[in-house]
């Protein structure tokens, strides 16, 4: 399964590559990175028929994480990707909206990488 990480903070890519360097090296986890909702949609189009987990930030300039979630749920039915949303601490409103729009799981910022690792590796 490919994991598509969506965040407008470009250093998130390096951070994930470092945090999960062992898992990446051994091929346990396979990451793809997008820096905006729009880019994420483009990447999704190239990965049709693949199993994908999307890990997306909400607050992004342009298309927000919630907009992306809505589009994903509408346009990518087969197979429906898993979507995990990253919300700011205490942002219940966005969490509820994401839940309503069909998010599968939530993570709170700052990311707990140990927790994320266990979630990602048990998903397999």
């Amino acid at each position: 399964m490919k994991i598509l990480v969506v965040d407008d903070e470009k250093d998130v890519q390096l951070l994930f590559q470092q945090r999960f360097r062992k898992e990446i090296r051994t091929g346990v986890l396979n990451f793809v990175f997008a820096f905006s909702g729009e880019e994420a949609l483009d990447i999704m189009k190239t990965m049709e028929q693949e199993a994908v987990l999307i890990l997306s930030d909400i607050n992004m300039p342009g298309m927000s994480g919630l907009d992306l979630l809505e589009k994903i749920r509408k346009d990518f039915e087969q197979p429906p990707p898993l979507v995990m949303m990253v919300t700011a601490y205490g942002d219940e409103e966005n969490r509820n909206t994401a839940k309503r729009l069909g998010a599968d799981d939530f993570l709170t910022k700052p990311l707990d990488f140990a927790l994320l690792k266990s979630k990602l590796t048990t998903l397999k």
């Binding site: 903070e9 250093d11 951070l15 470092q18 945090r19 700011a88 910022k109 700052p110 990488f113």
Partner: peptide, 21 residues
């Protein structure tokens, strides 16, 4: 507060990664 949180998260995360490395 929100804008400081992001760089602070990076500082913490990269420091932790470096300790491991």
């Amino acid at each position: 507060a929100h804008e400081i949180q992001n760089p602070l998260n990076f500082v913490n995360n990269f420091s932790e990664v470096n300790t491991e490395l």
